[in-house]
Design a protein around this nucleic acid. Structure first.
Length: 278
DNA sequence: ACTCAGGGTCGAC
DNA sequence: GTCGACCCTGAG
């Protein structure tokens, strides 16, 4: 177990980024967060206004990987400058500066955002962590140190057990997603090369995945920056603070906002979501 | 004990 | 496009 320097603390806000509703397996511990990425557990923390990471066998390659996962190369100041004339967005960027979009595992985001439907962050976290505790592989000494289960494990676990864990009506949807991935009805890796529209039509083949959930999967699992996921919170921000038409449904708002903000869409959506929810 | 709402989507009309 | 149903859980 060794620890290495990542960046200055002002470069990233750990709480809003790791525990603000885009990822569900980071847990506060002391001055930082513990969590699993892939097969390894990490502790990311602040000390003397610097961010460090500790893990087993930290190598240069792992540091490069983590910096990419945290999206540290993204230029938040450019984002801020681009919308300096928009009072609402400016206040969000100032207030929550350091919030970044994580580059998570595609499969994990599929399951997490199916689970997110009409739920809340604390319940999503409970569901997802219960799933990992039950059928993930133990990879560390910490309570939550389990991997995210592959589709085969979830199928084997079954719908009834998902219901017992509290996934409710989302249980058959998660089974359907697992089956479609195993059967190659949908090949997730291919989405990295698809257009937005093509990715959307692929993802919505999965039961329980509509435009909103698909948008979240594309944003957090496929690193797309030109996606504007609209939920009840983002809707409030768009309608109440940016003058969007309240008669539009969320799908329409998503399309309009995406056209307006282009490749800034995902980050703007993230700041609006966090600002409206907080 | 009871109501309400939380990062929606599905199927029927 | 609209509408009720779908599961569960914590808060008031």
């Amino acid at each position: 177990m060794n620890e290495l320097y990542l960046c200055e603390s002002k470069q990233i806000d750990l709480k809003s980024t790791l525990d603000g509703g885009q990822a569900f397996r980071w847990h506060q511990h002391g001055n930082g967060f513990r969590g699993i990425i892939g097969q390894f557990s990490y502790y990311i923390f602040i000390k003397n206004k610097k961010i460090y990471i500790s893990s087993d066998n930290l190598s240069k390659e792992k540091i490069v990987f983590i910096k990419n996962y945290l999206d540290l190369q993204y230029d938040l100041n450019l984002l801020k400058r681009n919308f300096k004339n928009n009072l609402y967005l400016s206040s969000l960027f100032k207030k929550y500066f350091g919030l970044r979009i994580l580059k998570q595992d595609p499969w994990e985001t599929v399951v997490c955002f199916i689970t997110s439907s009409v739920s809340n962050i604390s319940k999503i976290k409970k569901n997802i962590n219960d799933l990992c505790l039950n059928i993930g592989d133990k990879v560390g000494s910490g309570y939550y140190d389990y991997t995210f289960p592959v589709p085969e494990k979830i199928i084997n676990f079954g719908e009834e057990n998902l219901r017992k864990l509290g996934f409710g009506f989302r249980s058959p949807y998660i089974i359907d997603a697992s089956k479609k991935v195993i059967n190659k009805d949908i090949i997730l890796e291919n989405l990295f090369n698809y257009s937005y529209e093509k990715s959307l039509s692929e993802l919505t083949k999965i039961k329980g995945v509509g435009r909103k959930v698909a948008d979240c999967i594309m944003t957090y699992g496929f690193q797309r920056e030109d996606v504007f996921a609209v939920d009840r919170w983002v809707r409030r921000g768009l309608v109440n603070n940016l003058g969007y038409n309240s008669k539009h449904n969320n799908d329409k708002l998503s399309i309009v906002a995406r056209n307006n903000f282009g490749s800034f869409s995902s980050y703007i959506q993230q700041y609006i979501f966090y600002g409206e929810k907080t």
